[in-house]
Computed example of a mutant assay.
Amino acid sequence: MPQLEQVSVFSSLIFWSIVSFALLLFLLKKYAFPPILQMLEERQKKISGDIQNAEAMRAEAEKIKKEFEDQLQTAHDKANTIVQLAHDESRKLQEKTLNETQAKVRQMQKEAEHEIRVARDKLMGEIRQYVSVLTIASTEKILRRTMQDDDKKRLVDESIDEVVRNLEKN
């Protein structure tokens, strides 16, 4: 190795390089390293503080998130309760409307039956009257004689009863 053979020639150079390096190292240690180390320590403290702040903020965010989820669940429960109440109210209203409609239908049916009875009674009265007149006229023609009022009335009633029985059978 030829580089090591020339050490004697550069011995003064090596000495001054070591002295310069030692002086530089001393100056750096005395004047440069303390501010650098202090700055590094401050940076480390700042980073540690930032990490602690981030952890605190994360914990706060988790707490807020949990509170929000609780509030959201409460709101969801309230909404479900409101929907259930509305559903129940709707069902009650539907049942009430159905009952009212059924009552109206029964009332209308009763009224219709009453009107039918009244119309039937009126019709029966008219038929009775028509039949009585017809019976009297036909009986007078057939018998060609005059009848007593009691006989007329009895014959009319019998004829009416017979016609009514025949109508009721049909």
Rank of each mutant, 00 (worst) to 15 (best):
A32Y: 01
D149S: 01
A119W: 04
S11F: 12
E5R: 12
I51P: 03
R117C: 09
E41V: 08
E5Q: 10
E140W: 10
S20N: 13
A79L: 13
S159Q: 02
I14K: 04
F33G: 03
D50Q: 15
L85Q: 14
Q148S: 13
E89K: 09
V163I: 01
I142D: 06
K30H: 06
M1L: 10
L23N: 04
K169L: 00
K65F: 08
L167K: 03
D88V: 10
A22H: 14
A54Y: 15
S159N: 01
M124V: 03
A59M: 12
E5A: 11
K153Y: 06
F68R: 04
S8P: 00
Y31D: 00
S48K: 09
L27Q: 08
L85H: 11
L27H: 10
E115K: 11
R117I: 07
A59L: 12
L98E: 02
Q148D: 15
K29W: 13
V156Q: 03
S90D: 11
A22M: 15
R128A: 02
R165D: 11
E162N: 12
T97M: 13
K104N: 02
V156D: 01
R145V: 00
V19D: 05
Q6M: 14
G49N: 15
M108H: 07
L98R: 06
R165L: 05
S132L: 02
L23M: 11
S159R: 02
L24E: 14
I82W: 00
F68Q: 05
S159H: 01
N53W: 10
E5H: 08
E126I: 14
V163W: 00
M124Q: 03
K92E: 11
I64N: 08
I51L: 03
A112D: 09
Q107Y: 02
A54D: 15
R106S: 03
M147N: 01
A75E: 04
V9Y: 12
F15G: 00
Q73P: 05
D149L: 00
Q71L: 14
Q109V: 10
K78N: 08
E62G: 04
Q109L: 08
F21N: 10
M1S: 08
K141V: 04
Q52H: 11
D77R: 02
I127P: 00
F15D: 06
T81K: 10
N170P: 05
V83L: 03
L98S: 04
E69P: 04
L98K: 03
K30R: 11
S12H: 12
Q38P: 00
L72T: 15
L23C: 06
Q129W: 09
K78Y: 02
S8T: 05
I14Q: 03
K96W: 06
Q3L: 15
R58S: 11
Y31F: 04
E140A: 13
K78E: 09
F10M: 15
I116T: 14
K65Y: 08
E111V: 12
L4Q: 09
D70R: 00
I127T: 05
Q38W: 12
M108S: 04
V163E: 01
D151L: 06
I47F: 00
F26C: 02
V19L: 05
P2L: 12
A86D: 14
H76P: 10
P34F: 09
N80G: 08
K96L: 11
S20Y: 12
E5T: 10
Q6D: 07
Q102K: 11
D50Y: 12
K92A: 07
M39W: 07
E42P: 10
I36H: 01
